[in-house]
Amino acid sequence: MQKTEDPRVVRRTIVVNADIQRAFEVFTQNMGQWWPKEHHIGDSPLLAVVVEPRNGGRWYEKDEDGSECEWGTVLDWQPPIRAAFSWHLTGDFEYVADITQASEVEVRFTSETAERTRVEVEHRCFERHGESGDRLRTEVDKPGGWTYVLNGYAKLMA
């Protein structure tokens, strides 16, 4: 994976053993199955993460108690090469409706071979989340933080 030096943008790249169509579909349509489950909004356990497959579509989570919580909006939908979202979640995955406090996530898919796909994530304008500073701090301070959560996920998948 790569890092960028631009301090206002996060770029991450990974190559997966899947064709581009499937990489796009699993990323966007099975998101809840690979997403860190502890990092969501609802009080009830995370059931699914739904991306409505169209421009302007909702991006939201469904929880076991039946509740739905917004995460953002589809800003651009170009399967299987590109999807972009507004990201309204604070450091503790609390939704802030104001789009001026939302950052942007762009995901690009490129075929490396018929069976290998490069997935690039660009997360930008996150300085707009400054409002969530105290909550973000709390999250970062949790023992283990994200790494702990993803270790749990990796074990579940094994």
């Binding site: 890092k3 990974i14 996150f126 790494t147």
Partner: peptide
């Protein structure tokens, strides 16, 4: 602040790769 999201996406993409 950027590095927080950088770490998150690094881990999330690794998780995505494992899953797919």
């Amino acid at each position: 602040i950027r590095s927080y999201f950088d770490r998150f996406w690094g881990d999330a993409l690794a998780s995505f790769k494992t899953f797919i």
